[in-house]
């Protein structure tokens, strides 16, 4: 996921509705790929990140449990 986030290329990305503990490597890549699109389609970076987190259930889990995530 992190490597896709860093790559930051605009590509369509699907939804991943899995829990954090059951996300696979491939699904992680899909989630990471979605950030670039979310950032491009919002006026501010904060709104883009919000959209990205709300879109994927596992990121919401991470946001709630880890103080450092956002």
């Amino acid at each position: 996921m992190m490597s896709r986030v860093v790559r930051n290329t605009l590509k369509p990305a699907g939804n991943v509705e899995r829990k954090l503990c059951s996300v696979s490597l491939k699904e992680g890549e899909t989630i990471g790929r979605g950030l670039a699109l979310a950032l491009a389609s919002n006026l501010t970076a904060e709104a883009g990140v919000d959209e990205w987190i709300l879109k994927h259930r596992c990121l919401g889990e991470l946001d709630r449990t880890e103080a450092w995530f956002r």
Binding site: M2, V6, A67, W68, F69
Partner: peptide, 18 residues
């Protein structure tokens, strides 16, 4: 370590990652 991390640490790591 992760137990010492706060939002500023994560931001700093995020910048290192780029």
């Amino acid at each position: 370590g992760l137990d010492e991390w706060d939002a500023d640490d994560a931001r700093a790591v995020g910048e290192v990652v780029c």
